[in-house]
Amino acid sequence: MAEPAAAAAGLGRAEPGGAGADPLLPQGENGVDGRAIRVGTRRSQLARIQTDSVVMMLRELYPDLCFEIVAMSTTGDKILDTALSKIGEKSLFTKELETALERNEVDLVVHSLKDLPTCLPPGFTIGAVCKRENPLDAVVFHPKNCGKTLSLLPEKSVIGTSSLRRAAQLKKKFPHLEFRDIRGNLNTRLKKLDEKEDFSAIILAAAGLKRMGWENRIGQLLGPEDCLYAVGQEGGCSIPVAVNTLLKDGQLYLTGAVYSLDGSDSLKETMQTSVSYPHQNEDGPNDDVQHVGITAKNVPGQAQEAAENLGVELASLLLSKGAKHILSVARQLNDTR
């Protein structure tokens, strides 16, 4: 049995517990030994907004419990003069929080799911995933380009993004544009865009803009035909890997793709599987089964297993068609840039 993990997503430590223990919160009548439940988060404004929303949901579910938010800076927050893909570490936005969780300085932490590394530390689990916001990437244009789209920008217009995934796909789709790294939190990036002439537009997560109340700055949403979105941190920040998912009529459709740094070489495949399974009884034999580190009691175990197998099968298909070579070259080129 596990304590809470990544919500939205949030991470928690795996602790022994009874079959009826709640996987979402540390056990105890008033939190942990009568004290407040400590919720770890990054210090950035966007992370705080996300964590505040999760804590609000927890307070509604558990009105008798007290929650305390513990904010801290991570490696990714501190190093702002280097591209994320060049820092050379994984868990850039999660490591310090995981350390605090391991040291029992916090009881659970809240992350954006795309910041989580592919493999969780031993003994950790994702205990809750909140309803997904819009997963698409968005284009925010310089005021002088208001009303345009990427395809209508002049030749050699510079687009800012810190993501190799975004840059690789958009270079392939819009070869007339140039892409340059841009770092900093959302406020900093928007200020760089608006107050200087360095960028014609920047690419940001639509979910982040919405949470900050800046939806009116979205000039263009990038659908899957333009840019597949992130899934966790597969391979860290130095590899262009992307996905798109669709759940329809009990079928889960998964599209996965890998790209070279300039987008000229790529592989993209789509597979599907049925995830339509009945819920088991509360005390069923698979209650404590965990798939890919996620404790999800409200999702039938067979559906979780089918979804996990779909990801493995799609990855195997891409590897059989040469994905490993594309990604190896991309990593080597990124290391030498």
Rank of each mutant, 00 (worst) to 15 (best):
I49V: 12
D288F: 01
A5Q: 03
L261D: 04
G223R: 03
V139W: 01
D22W: 07
G311M: 08
L317N: 06
F179D: 02
P154R: 14
V32R: 13
K191M: 10
H325D: 15
S266A: 15
T270R: 08
T118A: 12
F174N: 12
S328V: 06
V329H: 04
R183H: 03
K95W: 05
K144M: 05
L101A: 01
P143F: 11
R42G: 15
L221M: 09
G28P: 06
K321I: 07
K196F: 13
N281D: 14
A14H: 01
G127F: 02
L65A: 07
V289D: 13
S85P: 00
G184I: 05
G31R: 02
S266I: 04
R337D: 11
H325F: 06
R183P: 00
G311C: 09
N30Y: 11
N281H: 07
G301V: 14
L252I: 06
V139G: 05
L92C: 10
F199P: 05
T270H: 01
L222Q: 03
P154D: 12
L327F: 03
G10H: 08
G236W: 13
D335Y: 09
S53M: 12
I202T: 09
K95Q: 15
F124G: 00
T82L: 12
V110C: 13
A323V: 06
K248C: 12
A14W: 05
R217H: 08
S151F: 03
A242E: 06
I87A: 10
L150F: 11
L246C: 14
Q45H: 15
A296G: 05
V32P: 02
D33C: 01
A8V: 13
A83S: 14
E269L: 04
R165Q: 13
G284Y: 01
F174V: 07
Q45N: 09
G28L: 02
N185K: 06
Q27F: 01
G256S: 14
T149L: 08
E197Y: 00
L46P: 02
A47T: 04
V299C: 15
L120W: 07
F199Q: 04
Q272G: 04
I203R: 04
S157C: 08
